[in-house]
């Protein structure tokens, strides 16, 4: 990967090794997506995996938006 930017690379990549991500794959309303859990019962949409193009034009599930979920018991 080559970065072509006016910003110095040391600025762009600062904190590179400290970043920790809590990413999970979920399906909401039939849309498969990657979310990042944070706080209690909240998650931020990172990106959609769905192949349905209209999902990408739906602001409700735009990347960056926060969704709330209810913790439920999983029967195994």
């Amino acid at each position: 990967m080559i970065l072509h930017t006016v910003l110095p690379h040391e600025l762009v990549l600062a904190g590179w090794d400290e970043a920790a991500y809590d990413y999970h794959d979920v399906v909401i309303d039939g849309i498969s997506m990657q979310v990042e859990y944070f706080g209690s019962a909240r998650a931020k949409i990172i990106r959609l995996y769905s192949g349905n193009l209209s999902d990408y034009l739906n602001p409700l599930y735009a990347p960056g938006s926060v969704i709330h979920y209810r913790p439920t018991q999983i029967r195994e």
């Binding site: 400290e18 970043a19 991500y21 990106r47 193009l53 034009l57 990347p63």
Partner: peptide
């Protein structure tokens, strides 16, 4: 994935939007 102090535009977000 760039460190969080960067404001970024991710290409995997833009490309399906353009297809849409």
């Amino acid at each position: 994935i760039l460190p969080p102090q960067n404001k970024t535009t991710k290409y995997e977000h833009l490309i399906p939007q353009l297809v849409g």
